[in-house]
Design a protein around this nucleic acid. Structure first.
Lengths: 254, 254
DNA sequence: GCTTGCATCTTACGTTACGTTAGGTTTTAT
DNA sequence: ATAAAACCTAACGTAACGTAAGATGCAAGC
């Protein structure tokens, strides 16, 4: 037989570590075609071919357990298997793209503002993170057209809004303690409400939302402010809404 | 204090399992703000906010160990951290895209031919998998322009070539045993050589390659045939080359 | 006060694909 | 013969939990 390679040679030839070859032997995905009485492993040309398959299938994202089965019976439905695998990979890609988008927007803000308050930062990321689920969630409540309209703002504009919003929130944070109906605070809140309005169309759907019983699922919207600052800001928003002639009850639901 | 939630309630509110909360407590990333003498955990509103951060940072792909540090000192350089993270995610995305491309091409072939011989299949995937490294490798040997020219074939055409090649390889496999210089075999080999020539421009670079000492790194090109079939096919190629008036020595290098 | 039942606790092993010592044996080279 | 490589097995470590198993705790009904 052609038991050509010691494990060291085989390792160099394949680029896999000796430990990996030991492991493959152990779990039975590739046992060397010859083992001496004293336990030394020797691999053949045929083993090289099998390993080639293993490496290739690993590249496609299959687990060693799956690969083991594939090698056992070469009757596996390649087409179905590939299709499933592609679906899995596409899903992973989508997730990564979401993450990259969030990182991108976050960087956009950070590059403009320098280091930002952690809570505000988290709110920003969360908004992006939740966009899809949020959208899906709203589609179950409102009509689809409206939801699409709400989220119709361009990516570029969204970045703008994010930057400005973060700036305003930061300023609000710093103004905490002053009068909620002061000129300065009201001006900021005005801008913030305008920005949010641009982002979500109008806020009337919030009233629809209020009717829905979300059963402790308030975890969806984290606040960018501490408890006290939030109450203070809410007071400011209430005043602002009254000035605009819109009823808005910011008090917590009993 | 506001020790509002038992672990069960907290679990429902956050969507994380009790086990996960136990684990976060264990590794110190989130310890409940109150624990009874008998060990019962109770979480506060503040804990909710911290957990919100944890979940958000996890979404961005950070490890719990990193998150722990981030939470400890809120002086972390957000910008640098985000930039690094983005690079990591982009790299992951690239890798997944390579896999998807390979799966895609493979499916393209399988859908056209039905289940294909495993070895041929592996060769196909491997060609795609290795494309980048291969390209990089060749750039170290040949001039860049030539390398680019070699890989200039369109994606669509590449799929065509792959389908046809697989078909020919399959037929060759079935014809094994007949005379290498028969009309049928030579016709197939002719087509195969033509296809390969289209894919890689011309083969003259193979001669340049022969001068390079690759030191046991032949693992790069797996064969789509078994040992015997390969020898038989090589004989056919040799004959074909002679007919074309090109010297080609398919015999193994001593 | 007692039992039932649910909530919660700790302990600890399983998962994936190896990396990394540690300590002993075998083969090869001098 | 002896030293240096090469190789062996055994076993723990990794990340982020899932999944029992078995022991307590606690509120409610009898």
């Amino acid at each position: 037989m052609s038991v050509k390679y010691s494990i060291g040679e085989f390792s160099k030839k394949t680029g896999l570590t000796i430990r990996t070859l030991h492991y493959y032997d152990e779990i039975g995905v590739l046992k060397p075609s010859f083992v001496t009485e004293k336990g030394r492993r020797f691999y053949s040309e045929q083993d090289l071919i099998i390993l080639q398959k293993i490496v290739t299938l690993k590249f496609l994202g299959y687990s060693l357990e799956q690969i083991k089965e594939f090698l056992r019976e070469d009757k596996w439905d390649i087409k179905e298997s590939l299709t499933i695998q592609k679906q899995i990979m596409l899903e992973q890609k989508r997730q990564i793209e979401d993450v990259i988008k969030a990182l991108d927007h976050a960087l956009n803000v950070v590059e403009h503002h320098g280091n930002v308050d952690a809570s505000i930062f988290m709110t920003l990321i969360n908004g992006i993170q939740m966009e899809k689920e949020h959208k899906q969630f709203l589609k179950g409540i409102l009509d689809e057209q409206k939801v699409e309209q709400i989220f119709s703002v361009s990516d570029e504009r969204q970045r703008e809004i994010e930057k400005e919003s973060v700036g305003i929130m930061t300023e609000l944070n710093e103004l905490f303690g002053s009068e909620p109906d002061s000129q300065e605070v009201q001006s900021l809140i005005n801008k913030l409400v305008d920005l949010m309005t641009e982002l979500v169309g109008d806020w009337s759907f919030l009233e629809d939302l209020a009717d829905i019983d979300v059963e402790g699922e308030e975890f969806i919207f984290p606040s960018p402010f501490t408890k006290e600052v939030e109450e203070w800001v809410l007071k400011g928003i209430e005043i602002n809404m009254q000035k605009r002639g819109i009823k808005y009850d910011g008090s917590p639901k009993g």
